[in-house]
Each structure stands twice: as C-alpha cells, then as structure tokens.
Design a binder for these strands. Structure first.
Lengths: 144, 144
DNA sequence: CTGTATCCTCTAAGATACTG
DNA sequence: CAGTATCTTAGAGGATACAG
C-alpha cells in the first residue's frame, strides 16, 4: 500500500496532540506567537505599568485580551503582578528577569520588522499584482 | 461624561481595523506569529526543499497548512518558489535574502526558547499549583 | 507530486454588562 | 480601577476528495 507515509503523519499528529514527542520549543513559540504578547512586552519594557496605563499604551487591545495576555505572561514567569490594596485597587505589571531576557529577542524581532517592512510591503504588492492565473511566479519550463 | 477614554479606544480600534495609523511593525509581527511560519522557516533554512520533503520534516503539519504557510511566506518575499514542469511536477522552496535576514531573528527566538523552556515550565507549575482563589500571588496589603 | 476546493470544528478575540 | 462572566462571531486549522 502507498499509504505508509500518510499513516506515519497521522501517528505524528496524534503524538503531537497527545503532547508527547514534540519539539520542545514549540509550546514556547506558540505562547509567544499570541497576537498581543509582543506588544505587551514592549509596553512594560521600561518600568512597571498599571493596567489602565497599559490599555492606553496599546490602542486596539480590548480589556479582556489585555488581561488574558497578562495572565498568560504571568503564568510563564515573564511578567510579575503587584497588587496594592487601597481605596481604588492598584495593580502594577513588570517584566521579570526571565521576561527581560526574552525582551532582547523581541526587540530583535521588532527591529527586523521596522527595518524590513518596506521590503515586505513591496513584495506583497508584487505578488498581489500578478493575475491569479499567472501567479506561479517563478515557473521554470524544464521539459525533460 | 466619563466615557471619553472608551470612545478614544473605540476610535483607535476602528482606525486599526481600517488599516490606518497602526504601529508599522504589527502586521509583520502578526504574519510571523502564524503557527507554522517559524517551523517552515527553520526547515528551509539550509537549502531548497521540495514540498513533500517539507511535509516530512514538519510532522503534524497538514498539507493544507503547509501550502498556505508557504504562500504567505512567498507573498511576503521571504521564500521563493521554483516550479519544474516535468512528468511529476516538482517544486522547490528556498529562503530569499530577506528570508535569511529574518532567519537570524527566528534562530534567536528558537535559542531563547530552548534555553529557557525549563524556567518557563517551572513557572507554569508554580502558577498552576496555587489554588485558584489564592492566585493573586504577588499581593501587597498597603492599607493606606 | 503538488495543489485546490469543500466542509466542518473549535478556539481566539471582540462586545457588553456586571462585581469588588 | 481592575477584573470576571457571557454571548457571539470570524477565522484558523483539520479531514477528505479531487485535479493538473
């Protein structure tokens, strides 16, 4: 039968879903990939910030997403949460040492993005300009 | 009225959705955040790879996701696609120079993940161990 | 072999309203 | 101010079948 390859793939997927035998970095990569993590990390990069201040600094983030992103970061030990019980409650978020170490990488990501956004933008325009039919850009006729 | 802040936020969201006036790096950040981009990039890091070979190297990726991820990378000018028209069609994917420049950053990300996965794992255990009620870990009583 | 087209599911994420 | 609780929806992602 010729299904062997597919079967292997299925097993691989099941192992993956079972949480076993996967590349160790994946879960972290996925955690970091969440839509707002980088934004939040960059926001709290220099000094503690209150919840409300964070919302102001990250326009477009719903209060719900901000909270859940913060919880996620907190769970991963990247951000610490300090609650001051006073008349109106006050909470501050701050990067942990672990968070700072990740921040370095995130800065690299941000730097690359800012540096190359023009290149990417023009690549996208190039790609989108071609008619959907002739979109096999780099096509080589090599009729052997 | 005290709704001013919320109104501003709504406007910000609408501007965001309208695609105007947002942080320039965001779209790139989001593009990179897709589940499989880093995996694919690391896979094609050293040399051209055929579609089938890629599938073999990234267990758990469905054929559909692999293709769509590749298209996305191709659109952003990070990966080039070479089609050789022969009896069974053959396509090879390869990092573009732009792709290689991003690869450096991705490697940094991978390196950090591998280096700190233990720290994150233990932080998660710490967090999860606390009873959901007393999960306000860093609580400070500062009754003024 | 490579890729498109469907269908279907499940979760991320937004809107809204309410508590301490 | 900070946060939780619901409801709802758009889209990511999987399975499958089919086409060039």
């Amino acid at each position: 039968m010729t299904l062997t390859a597919d079967q292997k793939r299925q097993e691989a997927q099941q192992a993956y879903n079972g949480g076993l035998g996967q590349c160790p970095a994946r879960q972290l990569l996925e955690a970091i990939s969440s839509k707002w993590v980088t934004l939040v990390m960059l926001a709290v990069a220099d000094g503690p910030l209150r919840h409300s201040e964070l919302r102001r600094r990250i326009p477009g983030a719903s209060q719900k997403m901000l909270t859940s992103t913060l919880r996620s970061l907190q769970r991963d030990g990247l951000v610490s949460r300090l609650v001051t019980v006073s008349v109106p409650v006050r909470t501050d978020y701050e990067l942990t040492p672990l968070g700072h170490s990740l921040l370095v990488v995130v800065h690299g990501l941000k730097g690359w993005a800012e540096e190359n956004m023009d290149g990417v933008a023009s690549a996208r325009m190039d790609y989108d300009r071609r008619a959907p039919g002739s979109r096999n850009e780099t096509k080589y006729l090599n009729v052997q």
